[in-house]
Amino acid sequence: MEILMILTGGIIITVAVYLLMTRSILRVVFGIIMLSHGVHLLILTLAGLEEGAPPLLTENADAYTDPLPQALILTAIVISFGVTAFLLVLAYQTNKAHDSDDLEELRGNADE
């Protein structure tokens, strides 16, 4: 199970990194969303997927899955939501200011 999840996570991250290097600003935002998906999956997997009940004491089980990475990822999901919302607005405001969503055209710095 772990190997399968690790490979899935790796492929998601590969695609995410590819998207980060594309020209369209929206694709870059999508890349970031994908990156966090991949990372979440990996964190959960690396903590171990041994059989065990969900981390609810009401289950009265002998073993539970590790609650700590789950708490971490829950936080991360919400944060990445906030960041993505911010990035989206940043993206469309950039587009509005420069009338382009093409990062090749948007390049340039004040010094030049």
């Binding site: 997927l49 981390p55 609810l56 999901i77």
Partner: peptide, 10 residues
């Protein structure tokens, strides 16, 4: 993967 809270949040 038995993470009900995560599934809901996601």
């Amino acid at each position: 993967l038995r993470a009900p809270d995560l599934a809901l949040t996601q």
